[in-house]
Design a protein around this nucleic acid. Structure first.
Lengths: 220, 220
DNA sequence: GGTTTAGATGAAGGAAGCTTCATGTTAGGA
DNA sequence: TCCTAACATGAAGCTTCCTTCATCTAAACC
């Protein structure tokens, strides 16, 4: 019943009453809002607290320091995207590869772009104190889900699903970054989405062809 | 003869004597070294200057502030990679697509991984004050070179070269990030390199097929 | 209604590090 | 050789914020 959305580094009070749980939530929300409004350079703990309708002291009752606060906000965002990916990966088990790719890409891009500006702002933050490890950890879980899905396909596929997963994740991450960092993400969204599906689809089809002719001279 | 590798935001002294040009160079070198040694959190202007065998004052004679220093270091790194890409793109004009892809990917990954740890460290920095714009600007120039190369292919290709370029850049950036952020980049380098070539090759081949059958019902 | 515990407050302490500038040093020309 | 301008120095000022903690308020329980 009691959640612990705060730091794993230093112990802090856990919310037990309703009002404090609300505070924690408001503070995390405010963190993202402040990030969007003033940028990470001008984000101060005081400002976040005020934006959340609380005081600095309250903030420090639930987050041991500024870094933990930002990490919690990042983790929250990534888990949303991860959940979307894991859901599709379960839904698509046993389906043909091209359908998997399409569903996966649609779900991923949609989740990522849903709150696009937050994504960008949080990425900027993630380069601070081991934000990379959080991103990596989430990416790993997503990768497991994707690889498991691929392994269950009805198509015949001998290429290592982990390797295919790496390529797909790299391409998806690359395209989403490109979209998010472009001046007008919505403008290119659908073109990029469709082309990425085509991109991944071509690759997966080629992987199947590669499997069915295992002794083909490997070019390059 | 005289270079101006420093800030574009606030004016600063330009090196005119040999010793000062050497200082500027040493400072930029030291910036990357300090970044690698202590991380961006502990990177201070004083530390960078000392590492370069100079004093803080000297540093501030050529860089208006810490941010400009980091930007200059980032720009320097990106130009190396850009130069490698532009070179291959010129070399490969008129060649078949699959050969272009292979050459491009090899050149890009090699340039990127050559000083891999620096890449990672500088990326972390790039999220500070408009480091994104520097990355984007370089990416744009690389994109132009790639698109021009693609447009010159001997294969028949009707798909928009810009769109293909976006996909290729996204995939390359994604894979290189994945490599750089992995625990042991060298271990996976060759596997990823070859698979990326296959990935891109499949896509380009499919693009040609798509061109030659223009009235095919567009799926998805 | 009184006691206890959870939660909230925000002024002030303190550390860190960017940046300046007054002063010293070196190179190049006359 | 002397003068001038370029260059180098690094202690100290100054700003910015993170973080604490003594104090206050609100809720829960008996």
């Amino acid at each position: 019943m009691i959640q612990s959305p705060q730091s794993h580094l230093k112990p802090r009070k856990q919310p037990v009453q309703a009002r404090s749980a609300a505070s924690v939530d408001a503070i995390l929300e405010a963190t993202v809002q402040v990030l969007l409004e003033v940028g990470k350079e001008r984000l101060t703990t005081t400002r976040v607290a005020l934006r959340a309708g609380a005081s600095v002291g309250t903030l420090y009752q639930y987050f041991p320091n500024k870094s933990a606060l930002l990490q919690a906000a990042l983790r929250r965002h990534l888990e949303d995207v991860l959940a979307a990916v894991e859901r599709v990966c379960l839904e698509q088990r046993g389906k043909p590869l091209h359908q998997m790719a399409e569903a996966l890409i649609n779900a991923f891009l949609q989740a990522k772009m849903k709150d696009g500006r937050s994504s960008v702002a949080l990425y900027a933050v993630s380069s601070d104190l081991d934000g990379a490890s959080i991103t990596q950890q989430t990416g790993l879980r997503a990768g497991n889900a994707i690889a498991a899905m691929l392994a269950s396909t009805s198509d015949s596929l001998t290429t290592d699903p982990q390797l295919i997963t790496s390529m797909l994740q790299a391409a998806m991450a690359g395209v989403s970054r490109r979209l998010l960092e472009s001046e007008n993400p919505k403008k290119h969204f659908d073109v990029f989405r469709k082309e990425l599906i085509f991109f991944a689809g071509s690759y997966l089809a080629a992987c199947v062809a590669r499997s069915s002719q295992p002794v083909l001279s490997r070019q390059s």
